[in-house]
């Protein structure tokens, strides 16, 4: 039985910035490091975590049936095929809208805490009820954003709400970083985003076409494609989450040679 379970909310405000992909990859990475990990899909209106993990055909029950005592928790948990330490629990399904309240979320998370080291909650987009339910059961949070104005603005709203609800620590993951665009100053830099949002950076994830390939297959990159740029980033994030001191990837170092030297020179602040 785990006593010091960490319950981490993975949220962003804006949709499509990479919450679910981060949840899936972090879940796999933590499980692989030997931690029993539950990933809870709190977005039951538009759930997708099952699809990214390749578990979409194995869902029989959801958290709702558990709470209504129609089944036991272990019947609703879907164990991952390759990573036995990882289990998925969908909160509900799209036909059962309107049932979930913050208290329901707390009850189900309390049950998960009995048997897992980590509970990762994949939060729905938006700042309305779905987000508030998911936040109610969380202790700490990871805010995912992209270096784009709309994503950063929405992340700021979410951070404000997390702060008022005493969720801490709140850490930042900057997703879909394009080193070349950053070097050319056509994309908000890492410092820009961390300064504006005033959050510690847990990690950045490089833009990587392999992410799409992995979702097509339902196999997160951290499962089978450990050499892809994004997979390395996800692994680093999982390690930092446990307090390991892993240096950040410098996006400018990612492009090397004369071109990169020139781009670094062009970034010199004159005044």
């Amino acid at each position: 039985m785990a006593t010091d379970t960490r319950v981490i909310l993975i949220c962003s405000g804006k949709g499509g910035v990479g919450k679910t992909t981060l949840t899936a990859n972090l879940g796999i990475s933590l499980a692989r490091q030997g931690f029993t990990t539950a990933v809870l899909d709190a977005d039951f209106g538009l759930r997708n975590l099952d699809l990214l993990l390749g578990l979409e055909n194995r869902i029989v029950y959801t958290a709702q049936e558990v709470l209504e005592e129609e089944c036991r928790l272990d019947q609703a948990l879907v164990k991952h095929k390759q990573e036995a330490n990882l289990s998925l629990l969908p909160a509900g399904n799209p036909r059962m809208l309107d049932w979930l309240k913050p208290d329901d979320m707390r009850r189900i998370v309390d049950m998960l805490k009995e048997q897992f080291n980590y509970v990762l909650i994949d939060c729905p987009a938006g700042v309305e009820d779905g987000f508030k339910n998911a936040m109610a059961a969380s202790q700490e949070a990871i805010v995912v954003t992209n270096p784009e104005v709309s994503a950063v603005r929405d992340a700021d709203r979410v951070i404000g709400l997390l702060n008022t609800n005493a969720i801490k620590p709140v850490q930042l993951v900057l997703n879909r970083v394009r080193p070349k665009m950053m070097a050319n100053q056509e994309m908000l830099s890492i410092d820009d985003v961390t300064d504006i949002l005033a959050l510690p950076l847990l990690g950045l994830v490089l833009e990587d076409e392999q992410v799409i390939v992995s979702t097509n297959r339902g196999e997160p990159l951290t499962l089978n494609s450990l050499n892809s740029p994004a997979a390395k980033c996800y692994l680093n994030i999982a390690k930092r989450l446990q307090g390991e001191d892993i240096p950040l990837i410098d996006p400018l170092e990612e492009s090397s040679g004369f071109g990169a030297k020139f781009r670094r020179l062009m970034q010199t602040k004159i005044f």
Binding site: Q185, D192, M266, Q267, I270, F271
Partner: peptide
């Protein structure tokens, strides 16, 4: 202002969009 901003200004090009975004 970065070196690139200054060169863009001298060449009367639009400045890089990251500073506008910020």
């Amino acid at each position: 202002m970065t070196l690139r901003d200054i060169i863009n200004k001298l060449l009367r090009r639009q400045r890089a969009s990251a500073s506008t975004a910020r």
